[in-house]
Amino acid sequence: MNFLDHAYQLILGFFAAVGFAVYFSAPLESIFASGVAGGLAWLVYYVILKMTGNKIIGTFLGAFLAGILGEFLAIKLKKPATVFIIPGIIALVPGAGMYYTMFYLVQREYLQAAIIGSETLFMASAIAIGVIVSTIFSRSLRHFRKMGN
């Protein structure tokens, strides 16, 4: 059951990323790869959320994975990493948080709105930090390899 659920989430993430890759006019030969990156990033977010109940750390780790995969695919397929990272992180974007913030504001539940709003803001920053950390990580990895040779 657990495995099936995870496979289902992976497939959902894959198709969402593929859809956005086309929406952002990605090069045709990169679309499948960015779909895989998006699916895996979403799966990591989902698993971490189920395990810890913390959305922010899940977002961070998902974005980190998307960034690492993006850097890896960039070398393999000879395209800038952005082409893979942008469809990869799109699933983590806190659209739901934005919606619920507005929902509670409309209902004049300002405390709830502030709680969810600040969480949304932190999730957005977590994506950015995840991507940056992965970029720095892969760059220093390349650097170490060069030194090893």
């Binding site: 198709f15 593929v18 859809g19 956005f20 086309v22 929406y23 699933a91 659209g95 739901a96």
Partner: peptide
């Protein structure tokens, strides 16, 4: 194409949430 795929992506988000 963009509308077809973009809409599909949005619909999958509905499932994901």
């Amino acid at each position: 194409d963009k509308a077809v795929f973009g809409a599909a992506a949005c619909a999958f988000f509905t499932l994901m949430f």
